[in-house]
Structure formats: structure tokens, C-alpha cells
């Protein structure tokens, strides 16, 4: 669960979300990432470290370059959690649909009875 905490904390920062959005289009080096964000390399490297520690991105070694890419599983874990929360709520609300239908039926039969009594 510590890693999931780290993932959400990592995602709470807009710059890091933008970095992930960029990486979703493909692998990129620190230089390539630093340019569009107008940030210094050390600043970008710091964000990359947070994302890497959270298991959201992976570093590859290619000569002197260290291109980063998305780690599929990190994002998947969170999507999975949201899907699970959603599935539980959907199930509750499907049941609520039935409860509401019963309430309506009950109300209508009461109204019918009132009508009969008149």
C-alpha cells in the first residue's frame, strides 16, 4: 500500500502529470522532457525520481542516455482501484434502482386504495 500512496502523491503534482502525459506518447530523455516544460534538468530529474520511486515510470540505459518511459503497471493499479470502487457503487445503485421502483409501486398502490375508498 505504500507504493500506492507514493503513486497518488506523485500524481498530485501538475508538472508530473504533464510529464506522464508526454511519456504516454513515447519514450523521452531528460533533455527532451526539460525543453517543453522550461525547467532546469535538475528540476526535471527531481520530478522523474519521484515518478520512478512511485513505480510510474521506468529508466532505460542507452549509452550515456537514460530515456524514461511509462511503467504500465503503476497506472493500471490505480485504474483498477477506481474501477473497483466504481463497480461497488454501480452494484449499490442497481439495487437502489429496485428499491426506488418498490417505493414507487408502494406509493401508487396506496393512492389506488385512497381512490377506492372515495
Amino acid at each position: 500500500m505504500e507504493t500506492l500512496d507514493a503513486k497518488f502523491a506523485a500524481l498530485a503534482d501538475p508538472t508530473r502529470r504533464a510529464i506522464l502525459a508526454r511519456l504516454s506518447q513515447g519514450e523521452a530523455t531528460v533533455n527532451e522532457l526539460a525543453d517543453p516544460f522550461e525547467m532546469s534538468q535538475p528540476a526535471i530529474s527531481q520530478h522523474l525520481k519521484v515518478l520512478e520511486d512511485a513505480g510510474l515510470i521506468i529508466r532505460r540505459v542507452e549509452g550515456t542516455k537514460r530515456p524514461r518511459r511509462l511503467a504500465g503497471t503503476g497506472i493500471e493499479a490505480m485504474n483498477e482501484w477506481l474501477a473497483m470502487l466504481g463497480a461497488t457503487m454501480e452494484k449499490n445503485y442497481d439495487r437502489l434502482d429496485e428499491v426506488l421502483a418498490d417505493m414507487n409501486e408502494h406509493k401508487q398502490s396506496k393512492q389506488n386504495k385512497k381512490g377506492e375508498m372515495r
Partner: peptide, 16 residues
């Protein structure tokens, strides 16, 4: 954000 993170984390435990 930290609170959301830990809520989501514990929610995940429960969900699982």
C-alpha cells in the same frame, strides 16, 4: 493530496 492518497490506498485494501 496526501489524505486522498491514503484514502484511496485504504479503499483499495477494502475493495480487494
Amino acid at each position: 493530496e496526501q489524505t486522498r492518497a491514503s484514502m484511496l490506498a485504504s479503499g483499495m485494501e477494502h475493495g480487494m
